[in-house]
Amino acid sequence: MFEARLAKGAIFKKILEAVKDLLTEASWDCGDMGITLQAMDNAHVSLVSLNLRSDGFDKYRCDRNLTMGMNLGSMSKILKCAGNDDIVTIRAQDNPDTVTFVFESENGEKQSDYEMKLMSLDLEHLQIPETEYACVVKMPAGEFARICRDLSQFGDSIVISCSKQGVKFSASGDIGSANVKLAQSSNVDKEEEAVTIEMQEPVSFTYACRYLNFFTKATPLSAQVKLSMSPEYPLMVEYAIDDIGQIRYFLAPKIED
């Protein structure tokens, strides 16, 4: 028996919005420690890695490790049926063919359940190596989304450059060029509005706008986003998910020919 209950059910709705444009299907791995999902997009340019810790749920029971292959378009349709304030429970038997989503209204007067067929997916399990990043930028998630959206009008790529002076986002194309520079916040009352930079060495890499814009679909999950960059390593874009876990996106840089 598997059962995971989350009072803040809207988190699941937001997670699906954050992955469904990048991935069509994925395996949800459930175990004692919690729920994880790891999958590359079809082009193998980016990787999504989601981790939800069991202790972050209001109720969590997992008698046996199980892997549930789901069509994320279908799962998203189901989660759209949940109200923003609903309590969401995901339930499955051992060796399941189906998974059940139960939505309860806050006052307990409405309960709905949706059963979805699982898929048998033959996906690779990947290990993400630990690394010390040359630059780690933390900034408001909304600001990052805005910059990606604005600069996408100028070209297919965004150059992210990080130095002691700050972080710079640049794009250029047929209509001209654009630069957005952010300095490290000197005096911040609200932590979530801060821009902070930890730098070992300056870096500058080029990334595809299309994928950065997919990643920013996670913006409603978190006030801040963390961008980690190193030579010879993919960009990591991380959004914390309350006190339950995080979603990380990895993106291979574009390479000069």
Binding site: L126, I128, P234, I255
Partner: peptide, 14 residues
């Protein structure tokens, strides 16, 4: 011109 890199070589298949 730039080419889009892929991730295959970064992650170890378990």
């Amino acid at each position: 011109t730039t080419t889009q890199g892929r991730l295959d070589s970064f992650f170890k298949v378990l």
